[in-house]
Amino acid sequence: MILSHERVGDFVILRVGESRVDATNSSELQEHVSSLVSKGGRSFVLDLSAVLFMDSCGLAGLIPITNCMPKDGRLLIAGLHPKVEQIFKLTKLNTIFNIYPSVGEALKS
C-alpha cells in the first residue's frame, strides 16, 4: 500500500495513495497507524481523497485503528470520494468517524 505521512501541528496527516482499500491492503494501513502511535502520534487525519473504492474489509479495517489510538487521540477522516462516502453512510460509519471534506477542514476542527 502506498502511504505517506507528515506532521502538521498536533496532527499527523496520513495519506493513502491507493485507489482501493480492501482485504488485500487494509492490514497495512492498520500496521502503519499502529507504528505511528507507538512513535508518539496522537491525532491523525486520514486522507482518503485518492481512494475511489473501499469494500467491507477496508471499512472494517478502520475499526481496529481506533482501538490502537491513545485515549486522548483523535482520528479524523478527510476527502471521501462520493462513492466511498455513500458506503460510510450506508454502513452508518459516518456516525462513528468525524468526516471532513478536505484535510484543511479537518485541521481546522
Rank of each mutant, 00 (worst) to 15 (best):
S34N: 04
L76M: 06
G40Q: 12
A23R: 10
T24E: 04
S49M: 11
R74F: 10
D72F: 04
S35V: 00
I96E: 01
H5L: 00
P101Q: 10
D47E: 14
L107F: 03
S35T: 07
L48S: 15
L14C: 13
S38M: 10
A60C: 07
N94M: 04
G9L: 02
K92R: 14
S34T: 02
V8F: 01
L48D: 12
L93P: 10
A60P: 04
I99A: 04
G9S: 07
M54A: 06
S43M: 15
C68Y: 01
S35P: 00
D10G: 15
K108S: 14
K83I: 13
S49G: 09
E31G: 01
V8D: 12
L93I: 09
N94H: 13
T66C: 11
I2E: 13
A50T: 15
Q86H: 14
S109Q: 11
T66I: 13
T95H: 12
R42G: 12
K89V: 15
N94F: 02
K92S: 14
A78C: 12
H32E: 01
F11D: 11
S34D: 04
V51M: 06
V103D: 05
F88S: 09
V8H: 06
I2S: 06
D55N: 15
S109L: 08
K83Y: 10
L75M: 06
S109H: 10
Q86M: 12
V33C: 12
R7E: 08
R74V: 07
E28R: 01
G61A: 09
V33L: 11
G61K: 10
N94S: 14
I63E: 10
G61P: 01
R74G: 01
P82M: 06
S4K: 03
L90H: 15
S19V: 15
K83P: 03
K39Y: 07
G58R: 11
Q30W: 03
L48T: 06
V37H: 05
E105P: 05
L76G: 00
A78Y: 09
H81A: 11
V103K: 07
S4D: 03
P64E: 05
T95I: 09
V12M: 14
G104K: 09
C68D: 04
I96Y: 05
H32M: 00
K71Q: 14
E85V: 02
A23H: 12
D22F: 07
T91H: 07
V37Y: 00
R7N: 07
S4M: 00
D22T: 10
K83R: 12
A60G: 15
G9A: 05
R7D: 06
I99W: 00
L59N: 09
D22K: 03
I77T: 07
K39S: 13
